[in-house]
């Protein structure tokens, strides 16, 4: 199977930005699978609006707790 276009530039970006070199073939294969993550985020992003107001996960936990 042909390697997706994103693999080589992503490896290079990681090396430049994080200083980490690709450790093995499995890691390179894993980058190819990133196409799936990108597609998923694009799909769910379309279904949700980014909120203008700050939102807090901890506040949601407190607000939604079980009634005594």
């Amino acid at each position: 199977m042909m390697e997706p276009d994103l693999v080589v530039p992503t490896m290079e970006a990681i090396r430049r930005w994080a200083g980490v070199s690709v450790p093995n073939a499995a890691a390179r294969q894993g980058l190819a699978d990133m196409k799936g993550m990108i597609a998923e985020i694009e799909a769910v992003r379309a279904a949700m609006v980014f909120e203008d107001e700050p939102s807090s996960f901890e506040a949601a936990l407190a607000a939604l707790k079980e009634a005594p």
């Binding site: 450790p23 499995a26 894993g30």
Partner: peptide, 14 residues
């Protein structure tokens, strides 16, 4: 282990 360094490596791409 191979699978772990591979998984961690992908995290830098996000």
């Amino acid at each position: 282990a191979i699978h772990l360094s591979a998984r961690l490596f992908g995290g830098y791409a996000i």
